[in-house]
Design a protein around this nucleic acid. Structure first.
Lengths: 236, 236
DNA sequence: AAGTGGTCTAGACCACACG
DNA sequence: GTGTGGTCTAGACCACTTA
């Protein structure tokens, strides 16, 4: 159940898009009609529509109406801020995680250059190897501010770190800056991954921020290049 | 000057972030203070704040206040010495463009599979080669719905297609779904790009939609892997 | 002219954080 | 308790599109 009126309307519209009641490239009922249907103010209807528009599902056009965006032709997506586990579940893949490194470090100049954490901060450094269908294809090189993620253990890291941070510790994550590039594998990649002749890895650098603006995580995900996919929707 | 009150407030806050009046990890004035400063209703202040939050510049925290996000400039995040990456992110690059192919096609089954345009539609197919510092490093394989982009010419494509569509034709673009992968070069890549021994290309597939939901563009950008970089901010 | 979304007001009550 | 942001109302007027 939705806890607010606008989420109720949000879910109603979303459901009607998914089940084909509202068709792509066509209009949904006008804001005034929806306001009467739900007996709410127009602002509440607009809030629901704005949310769906930022999801890329709707588009408001002045004087015309609110259109349903044509369905995005990809349903096997990785990426966004989705964690490895969420992505795997959605794609029903078999995965295994191993953790060859779980250590505590103090940020020195070299680490500061790489992670952008302030020099002197205490951080956890974790390397996780992701095995999918019996092939080690992803190496996650994680750095977390210890102060923020206190209580994190290797067995939690085997599962989902984000699940722990958000649900167990109540940490509010605002979002993350991601930078993707393609580079030759480093020593750790060669040591831990099943490169199978691939001489390049796709690297996703991830700078994650708390709701108050603090940088609390830096992660480099090294993907075997032939197994790498990334997806995002960019509003114009 | 801004044409609406909320944009005025939006620009005011943004300016104060940029010039250091509002500092990262600290709070901006409360919604009630801003409402009095600008003599507007609280909803108008909230609209400005919501916009900046969706830009990733602010973050509202219930009961606490509105925080300025700490943002590390993207060019610092890259590190390394690769001047191309820094330059391309600063947008200070001069592309030289050549157009070996500019043709009109009817969508058949094979093209439908690749572009997702309806079978039977008339489309433009354009291949553009991007040369940077005398190296051909990007191949753009573009497909546009002819009906929408009518009037597009090769000389426009040399410059900026989007500038033409948005400013000259008044086309409203909602956004685009992007999918990134790494693959071996195809025959066209081998023919047109200076691969310099690189045996992989980074491919950005781009599905662009109009405001009414219509898919009007499909583009594959093939980047020589050592010159590829991609950046995005994802809200949680 | 009628209908649509875009902006804005001046309130209200609620939920959360902190001292 | 006080202050903060989160939700919501019941209007109003404006700007754009279509007929």
């Amino acid at each position: 159940m939705a806890k607010s009126r606008y989420l109720e309307i949000y879910n109603f519209i979303k459901e009607n898009i998914n089940n084909g009641t509202y068709l792509p490239e066509e209009k949904i009922p006008s804001e005034n009609q929806l306001k009467d249907i739900f007996s709410v103010s127009r602002n509440t209807v607009r809030k629901a529509i704005d949310l769906l528009a930022s999801d890329g599902l709707l588009s408001s056009v002045h004087g015309k109406g609110v259109f349903v965006m044509k369905k995005i032709p990809v349903n096997f997506l990785l990426g966004g801020t989705e964690s490895f586990k969420e992505a795997s579940l959605k794609n029903s893949l078999k995965y295994k995680t191993s953790i060859p490194i779980f250590e505590t470090l103090i940020v020195n100049e070299e680490l500061n250059k790489k992670t952008h954490f302030p020099i002197g901060e205490t951080i956890y450094h974790i390397i996780r190897i992701r095995e999918i269908s019996d092939e080690k294809v992803i190496l996650d090189d994680n750095y977390f501010l210890k102060e923020i993620v206190e209580g994190l253990t290797a067995s939690i890291a085997m599962d989902s770190i984000y699940e722990f941070l958000e649900n167990k510790k109540g940490i509010k994550i605002n979002g993350a800056q991601k930078i993707i590039s393609v580079e030759p594998p480093n020593e750790e990649d060669k040591k831990y991954l099943d490169l199978r002749g691939n001489n390049l890895v796709a690297i996703v650098k991830n700078f994650a921020y708390l709701d108050n603006g603090t940088l609390f995580e830096y992660t480099e995900s090294h993907h075997r290049s032939d197994k790498f996919v990334f997806s995002s929707y960019a509003k114009r």
